[in-house]
Design a protein around this nucleic acid. Structure first.
Length: 827
DNA sequence: GCGGGACCTTTTTTT
DNA sequence: AAGGTCCCGC
């Protein structure tokens, strides 16, 4: 059982124990299902009707309710497993839901579709691809793939002259696709007198053509194309409408328009092919359908969401999908879950106070009956390393006090923040695991290997071919690649097939030989992995084919031949990939190379199932959603980080950042830490950091500052504790030899220095930050530093708030100091 | 075509 | 600080 699922069972107070082998037999088991639930939760499980919205606050036992609702549909024989479609956003959430449904209903869970939007759509597309010009073997472009493609197109169209970068283009296209727009529909309402706009549309259209040509979908297409498919072919849509009679959607507040439309298509009555009308507001209004027989009525829809936890507007999530659910589905039932079974009251009060600053939201107050609990602990470090050292020390301390590492998590806003934390954790010998960070499948050698597989499985995919054609180096450069591409265009064959005609390309003998060899290897691998139709490839085919490709292409040999130490690790990674392929074969005996590629494209996170037991979890605030831990550290609570500077200017940005902070806070069960640093190294230089405005929104009495921003000021140099040797005894204030139950030892440490007026502090955080203002220093000046004593300024570099004094201290030696905030005075 | 070195941009979050 | 890109000489 995962941490989160264990906790969620707890959330219902009394775990329901149902023997899956007992067979479905109604009454008694229904009672079991409802055991331990509060009234709204019961209602959410038992309500029957066309549409149900469960507004589930953080920690309100939502997953528990959802899984029991599914079980209850089965127990009462209202549905066969195959008639249930449950959709989540992440694979992790899907896996967890499947596991928990299995606990309730046993093997019959297998017939259900419990998957992410993307996986469900891939399943549908694989079946129906041939309806609209794709083949079953289509590949899925992840964001890296589509960026690479766009990079080429932007270059070819010379769009960079108009300020179009591949990244910006990608994000615009993605946003449009999430709105179900394509290049044509966008062009119709775009300002075509703007040349930048015209060129963008050109690139967009070219991009889509390339995808089609490559028999590939990008992430957004997976959803959007299914919607198009359903609208263009109502009889296809009807197949799925007939099949799925109960649709449940988790994290509904994070659905974008395309996902919303998909759900809407699926829940329309069977046989209804009336097109939706576009309302003037841009919202889709669906005409009320004529009364239908039970067999053909629309599927029942259950959505669960919490608008306060909507944190994906940046990728098109539309909060209106939840706030206007009742309008979209007239007669929908709404159930509110407000009782929290996760956190202490102090944590919830802080969360409520923070989120209360968002206007335009339905007031919702989480409450609990478990009591106040510990105060929230605040800490301000001098630097990010200092902050990290505090976290490490504190984790060490609570671990000694009996908290398992796996019950501790550290959150940050941006991935880059993890580095400083990692460094200190390594030095402190703390076991940790970064969740969802740099992914295994993002490594160049893995992408290369996957491209080899794609080249075999989907020969139409030119991107993959271009990627591998000169890897390992075969002496094939841009010129040769373009020659091949031109030849392919002339002959109206694919890039892949052009390789088979190496003699006709008009290239030098050496290069011709290299091309012919690559072709041979691909043919051989295809024979192994893609048996003639009707036959089934042996389960070992994928792993064997992969090995063959890597060996005969010379890829592995090339890596072994270098003296770069990293290449050794790359070879190991490739071995690991082969192992993954074997594992895949074990789990999917009939899985083809196509299935393997899909799985990798969609389940881009290897550590999902891996046990995080015995390690502290590090992750971004976004990744943290849906998880919970006994002790949570929210780090980098600074302006420009949270709220992030980029979002500060965007409409709705600060509000979304506040929700993100709220999500972070509400992950904590018993212990919450908020930490920040006074300075932070960014872009290779040190900058001054200000406490986040969100800190002021937490009532002062809930927050105990172990070291407030003001303390750092008055005391000045806690100067990089991280750089000092660990204090003897390890950790601060080590607890007496174990034994203490969690909580007993967690008496806050005495502050290092009295901090006058914490109460007043609450509303004046930025004012308390040390600021030497316009202190003018020049070389030759004498200064005194609180920790380093007296010294002489050698030089001053930098501008404004980033002016740095290079000081030679009499005792401490040379140091660089940020003049604005260093605890120094001029002599 | 390749490798090395100067230079430049980057860091928001994800299926 | 680090990784990618561009440019040059071989």
């Amino acid at each position: 059982m995962t941490d989160a699922s264990a906790a969620a069972s707890r959330a219902a107070s009394v775990p329901v124990v149902v023997d899956p082998s007992a067979g479905a037999s109604g009454g008694r088991r229904d009672d079991d299902l409802l055991a331990g639930l509060n009234d709204p939760q019961r209602e959410a499980v038992t309500y029957r009707g066309p549409a149900l919205l469960i507004v589930a606050g953080a920690g309100s036992g939502k997953t528990s309710v959802l899984t029991r609702r599914v079980a209850s549909l089965l127990y009462s024989r209202e549905a066969w497993p195959s008639q249930i479609l449950a959709i989540t956003f992440t694979n992790k959430a899907a896996g967890e839901m499947r596991e928990r449904v299995e606990q309730l209903v046993g093997d019959s869970a297998r017939g259900m579709w419990i998957s992410t939007f993307h996986s469900a759509c891939v399943r549908i597309l694989r079946r129906e691809a041939e309806q609209f010009g794709f083949t079953k073997a289509f590949t899925i472009y992840d964001s890296g793939d589509s960026r690479a493609l766009l990079k080429r197109l932007v270059k070819e169209h010379e769009a960079d002259a108009y300020g179009l970068t591949p990244a910006a283009t990608q994000s615009r296209i993605s946003k449009l696709k999430n709105e179900l727009a394509d290049a044509d529909s966008y062009a119709r309402q775009a300002n075509m007198s703007d040349p930048a706009e015209r060129i963008f549309i050109e690139v967009f259209a070219a991009y889509q053509r390339e995808l089609q040509k490559a028999n590939a979908f990008d992430f957004d297409d997976l959803i959007g194309q299914v919607v198009y498919l359903f609208r263009a072919f109502p009889h296809v849509a009807d197949v799925y409408r007939r099949r799925f009679r109960h649709i449940l959607v988790d994290e509904y507040q994070d659905t974008n328009h395309a996902q919303y439309a998909l759900i809407h298509e699926l829940t329309r009555p069977v046989g209804s092919d009336a097109a939706p009308t576009e309302h003037s507001s841009g919202m889709m209004i669906f005409e009320p359908e004529p009364a239908a027989s039970p067999d053909t009525a629309g599927a029942s829809l259950t959505v669960v969401g919490d608008s306060d936890q909507s944190i994906y507007a940046f990728r098109g999530a539309d909060i209106r999908n939840i706030s206007e659910f009742e309008r979209d589905y007239p007669g929908a039932k709404v159930v509110l879950l407000e009782q929290n079974y996760r956190s202490t009251q102090n944590i919830l009060s802080a969360a409520n106070a923070v989120i209360g600053h968002n206007f335009d939201r339905k007031d919702k107050k989480l409450w609990t009956d478990v009591g106040e609990g510990e105060k929230i602990i605040g800490f301000t470090g001098y630097s990010q390393h200092d902050e990290a050292q505090f976290i490490a020390d504190e984790i060490d301390r609570i671990h000694r006090a009996g908290v398992d590492y796996s019950e501790i998590a550290v959150f940050y806003r941006t991935n880059s923040q993890s580095r400083a934390i990692e460094e200190i954790f390594i030095r402190s010998a703390l076991p940790y695991k970064i969740m969802g960070g740099t992914k295994f499948y993002d490594r160049a050698e893995i992408k290369d290997a996957m491209a080899y597989l794609v080249a075999v499985a989907n020969p139409a995919d030119e991107m993959a071919m271009r990627r591998i054609i000169n890897r390992p180096r075969r002496g094939i450069g841009d010129v040769t690649v373009e020659t091949i591409a031109r030849f392919a265009a002339e002959q109206q064959i694919t890039f892949r097939d052009a390789l088979a005609n190496s003699a006709s390309l008009g290239v030098g003998p050496k290069i011709q030989k290299a091309i012919a060899h690559l072709d041979e290897v691909l043919v051989e691998a295809a024979a192994l992995m893609l048996p003639a139709s009707g036959e089934l490839a042996p389960p070992t085919a994928v792993a064997a084919g992969l090995q063959l490709l890597l060996a005969k292409s010379g890829y592995t040999d090339a890596l072994r031949a270098t003296k770069d130490a990293q290449d050794e690790a790359r070879v190991e990674n490739l071995d690991e990939l082969v192992a993954v392929a074997r594992e895949f074969a074990r789990n999917n005996p009939e899985g083809t190379v196509i299935d393997f590629l899909s799985e990798v494209a969609l389940v881009a996170d290897t550590d999902d199932l891996e046990d995080a037991s015995g390690t502290v979890s590090l992750m971004t605030l976004h990744t943290a959603k849906g998880l919970e831990y006994d002790a949570v550290f929210v780090t980098g609570v600074e302006e420009d980080l949270i709220p992030h500077r980029i979002s500060a200017g965007e409409p709705g940005g600060p509000q979304e950042e506040r929700r993100l902070f709220y999500v972070g806070i509400t992950r904590a069960r018993k212990r919450l830490y908020l930490s920040l640093a006074m300075t932070r190294a960014q872009f290779g230089e040190v900058t001054v950091a200000m406490p986040s405005r969100f800190l002021q929104e937490i009532p002062a009495e809930l927050l105990h500052w172990r070291q407030s921003p003001g303390d750092v000021n008055s005391r000045g140099g806690t100067q990089s504790r991280a750089l000092n040797a660990r204090r003897p005894g390890g950790g601060i204030g080590g607890s007496g030899g174990g034994g203490g139950r969690y909580g007993d030892d967690l008496v806050p440490l005495p502050k290092r220095s009295p901090s006058p007026g914490i109460e007043k502090f609450a509303n004046r955080i930025p004012a308390k930050v040390r600021d030497n203002g316009d202190m003018v220093l020049g070389s030759g000046d004498r200064i005194r530093h609180e920790d380093f004593g007296e010294g002489r300024v050698d030089a001053v570099t930098g501008e404004g708030a980033k002016r740095v004094a290079h000081v030679r201290f009499d005792k401490a030696g040379p140091k660089k100091l940020l003049i604005k905030i260093a605890p120094i005075e001029k002599l």
